[in-house]
Simulated scan of single mutants.
Amino acid sequence: MRSRLTLLLALLLPVALPAAPDRAGVLTVMERAADWQLANPSEKWTPLIWHNAAFYTGVMALNKVSTSPRFHDAMMALGEKHGWQLAPRPYHADDHAVGQTYAELFFKHREPRMIAPMRASFDYILAHQPDDNLEFDREKNPTRLDRWSWCDALFMAPPAWVRLWKATGDVRYLDFAVTKWWVTSDFLYDRDEQLYFRDSTIFAKREPNGKKVFWSRGNGWVMAGLVRMLELLPADHPSRPKFVAQFQEMAAAVLRCQQPDGLWRASLLDASAYPMQETSGSGFFCYALAWGVNEGLLPREPYAAAALKTWAALETFVQPDGMLTHVQPVGFTPVTFDANHTEPYGVGALLLAGSEIHRLLTP
C-alpha cells in the first residue's frame, strides 16, 4: 500500500514529496494536535462559540479512530458542564455548530437531555421563521445574521439540523436544512467558477489579478458542510443528486486551485497575491476530497493523490508540542497573517482531514 500510494503521488503531482503517510502516523499527528488544543483552550473565545465548536467536530472524528476514551470524555465533560446548551444567539448559524457534537454524543448514549435544548431552540425557529433576505448589508438588512447569509453558515448550522433529524426522526429539521441550504446556494454560489462568495458584500470585489474574490476557508467551510450533509442525507432523498452535483463541481474547481506544495492560498483565484501557506482552508479541502474518494463520489485519480499531498503538507505545520500553525485568523476575506498563528477551528479542520486520510489508507 505504501509504495503504491507513493508512486501515485509522484505520477500525478510531480514534485518532491515525503513518503506516503501511514495510518499509525496519521493518528499520532491527530492525537498530538488534539491534545495540545484541549490543554491550551483559546482565551479569546467562549467554549460554545463556533471557533471551538468546529474544533469539537474534529475531536468527534478523532474519537472514531482513536482507541483512547479521552477525546469522547472531553466532549462529554463539555456537554455536562454547559447543560447541553447551544451558544446564546437563537437564530445565528454560528451558535448552532456545537449542536453537531451534542447530537453525535446522543447517537452513542441515546440520552434525550443531550439534545433537548437544541430541539427547543430549533422548534422555536421553525415556529418563527425569518424571511429569506440574505443581503449582507448592516443598514439595509440589520437582521441579516438571523439567516444563513454568509457561506460559513453552511458548515455551522445545516449539519446540526440534519443530525437533530437523525436523532429524533422529525423530518421538519431535515426539510429546513435542505430548503435553506439551497436558498443560500442560489444567492452565493457562482455557477461560472463553481465556488461560493463569502457574502453579498464580496460580489463586486476583485483581486489584484482582476479575478473574483473566493476565500479559501469560506469555500472550505462549504465543502466540509456538504460532506456533513451528505453523510446523513438519505440515499433516496430527492435533493441528494443536487447536493452530490454541487460537491463534485466544487471539488473539481478546488482541485484546479491547489498549489504545488499541496496547500491552498487564502485567495483561490489569485494565489500570488497571498503567497502565505494556510492550513484551515487546506484542512477542510483535504477532508472533503478524501471523503469524496472514500465514498466513491470522486474518482481515486487524481483526488486521492491531491488529498494525500495536502495531508503530507499539513503534518509539517503540527509542531512537536502539537500546536498547529499557519491558521488564518477570524475573517471573511483573504489576508496575510502571522505564520505562527493558531486557532481551534484550524485544528478541527486538521482532525476532520486526518480522519478521512486514515480511512483512505485502510488496506
Rank of each mutant, 00 (worst) to 15 (best):
A10N: 15
L11F: 06
L13H: 14
P14W: 13
P14H: 13
P18V: 07
A19W: 11
R23S: 08
A24I: 06
E31C: 09
A34Y: 04
D35M: 03
Q37R: 07
K44S: 10
K44L: 05
T46W: 10
L48Y: 11
I49D: 10
A53N: 00
K64R: 15
V65Y: 11
S66M: 14
R70F: 11
F71C: 10
F71E: 13
M75F: 00
H82V: 10
W84Y: 11
L86P: 00
A87I: 03
P88M: 01
Y91P: 11
V98E: 04
Y102S: 11
A103E: 05
K108V: 15
K108Y: 05
E111I: 09
P112W: 13
M114E: 14
M114A: 07
A116T: 14
M118E: 13
H128S: 08
Q129G: 04
D131Q: 07
F136W: 15
K140L: 07
K140F: 06
S149V: 07
D152L: 08
A153H: 12
L154I: 13
L154T: 06
M156N: 03
A157W: 02
P158Y: 04
W165E: 12
A167M: 05
V171G: 12
Y173V: 12
L174H: 08
F176W: 14
V178S: 05
V183R: 03
D186K: 06
L188I: 03
D190P: 06
R191P: 05
D192T: 14
Y196A: 14
R198D: 01
R198T: 01
A204V: 10
A204P: 02
A204Q: 15
R206T: 07
P208Q: 12
P208E: 14
K212D: 07
F214C: 13
S216D: 15
S216E: 15
G218M: 08
G218L: 09
M223L: 08
A224N: 06
V227C: 14
V227R: 09
L230D: 04
L230T: 09
L232N: 00
L233E: 07
D236T: 00
H237Q: 02
H237K: 01
K242C: 05
F243G: 05
V244P: 10
Q246Y: 12
E249V: 03
V254C: 03
V254T: 14
L255W: 08
C257T: 14
D261C: 07
A266L: 00
P275V: 14
M276I: 07
M276D: 12
T279L: 02
S280C: 00
G281E: 04
G283N: 02
F284A: 12
C286T: 13
W291T: 03
L298M: 15
A304W: 11
A304P: 06
A305G: 13
W311F: 08
Q319G: 02
Q319I: 02
D321W: 02
L324G: 04
L324M: 06
L324I: 10
V330C: 05
G331N: 00
F332D: 04
F337N: 08
N340I: 09
H341N: 14
Y345E: 12
G348A: 02
G348P: 00
L351G: 02
A353K: 10
G354I: 04
E356P: 02
T362R: 09
T362Q: 11
T362P: 00
